[in-house]
């Protein structure tokens, strides 16, 4: 289990803290979604958890061991899968796996066994002799994941593991992650794809400006936020004069092209529809609250902003 208590962190060159009083609990065996716009502090948090950034003592515990103490990371058997293709494109899949298994101090027999296992889990068994640079984007993502599985992690940190790949590969990777979690691996998952997080994760936290804005079980959070929602999608963005017409509870996102409101403001929205017709209304939606609308409500920013 991971326990984070009032974690603060500032980069030496920055005057603004990147993380402010973060407190989180991630249960063993959970599949935890960490969401936030770019620059919210997700990568900083993952970097602290994976030992890339120094952890202040007494603020992060993994399995009740203080992360600031030497040896905690090794005992945690943690693996970070970065967003980039963090391997060597000129080498073959086998050579990459050999190398990353080797630097972890595995002996020859362990290496062979782990490489075979990781390759099978990620569907790369038939591609071991291929040069990594010649693989498709989807297979590269699988190799990125396979390298992370070499130490049979108990805690897997995945930073955007499905960016820029085809739906088939995305589906395969999500299935692999779900299977790993079903086998007991704790997964912390960051993604810009809300539907992925919604379908995969049981618990989430939304980070913005270095603070946790919301955390808990996904289903409970959605229910707490109310079940219904009205969205308006515009062809052209709102101008300053049009923004002034809006009630404070109406959320504007996507650079002024999307408006979201609770059904309580339904009448207000319908009159707005009349007034904003000149901007070109692309779509009007009314329905269940989802993770994306929850995120927009909290951060007033699109994930890709």
């Amino acid at each position: 289990m991971i326990r984070i208590q009032n974690l603060r962190f500032s980069y030496p060159a920055s005057q603004q803290p990147s993380l402010r009083d973060i407190s989180l609990e991630i249960g063993e065996g959970s599949l935890f979604g960490l969401l936030g716009p770019n620059g919210a502090g997700k990568t900083t948090l993952l970097s602290i958890l994976s030992g890339l950034l120094p952890c202040p003592p007494g603020q992060v515990w993994i399995n009740d061991l203080d992360l600031a103490q030497p040896g905690t990371l090794q005992k945690a058997r943690l693996a970070l899968v970065p967003q980039e293709y963090a391997f060597y494109l000129p080498l073959t899949v086998q050579q990459n796996l050999e190398f990353f298994a080797g630097v972890q101090g595995l002996d020859k027999q362990q290496r062979q066994q782990r490489i075979a296992q990781a390759a099978a889990q990620t569907g790369l068994s038939e591609r071991l002799g291929d040069r990594a640079g010649n693989l498709s984007g989807g297979l590269k993502r699988r190799l990125n994941l396979a390298i992370g599985l070499l130490n049979e992690p108990r805690l897997l940190l995945l930073d955007e593991p499905t960016v820029g790949i085809d739906p088939h590969s995305r589906h395969f990777i999500l299935q692999t992650i779900a299977a790993l979690n079903a086998q007991g691996t704790t997964v912390i998952y960051t993604s810009h794809y809300m539907e992925e997080v919604e379908s995969l994760c049981d618990r989430i936290a939304i980070v913005d400006h270095g603070e946790i804005r919301l955390q808990g079980e996904l289903q409970t959070l959605l229910e707490q936020q109310g079940s219904e929602r009205l969205s308006l999608e515009l062809q052209r963005p709102l101008g300053a004069s049009e923004r002034a017409l809006l009630a404070p509870s109406v959320t504007v996102s996507d650079c002024g092209r999307q408006l979201d409101a609770q059904p309580a403001q339904l009448g207000e929205m319908l009159s707005l529809v009349q007034q904003l017709q000149h901007l070109g209304i692309v779509r009007v939606r009314y329905g269940q609250h989802n993770l994306e609308s929850l995120f927009l409500d909290l951060t007033h920013r699109n994930l890709r902003d």
């Binding site: 030992g51 090794q74 970070l80 967003q83 293709y85 963090a86 630097v103 390298i147 130490n151």
Partner: peptide
């Protein structure tokens, strides 16, 4: 640039 150094450092190298 490719994050390989990050990965290696996260593996305790």
């Amino acid at each position: 640039q490719q994050g390989t150094l990050t990965r290696l450092r996260s593996q305790g190298i």
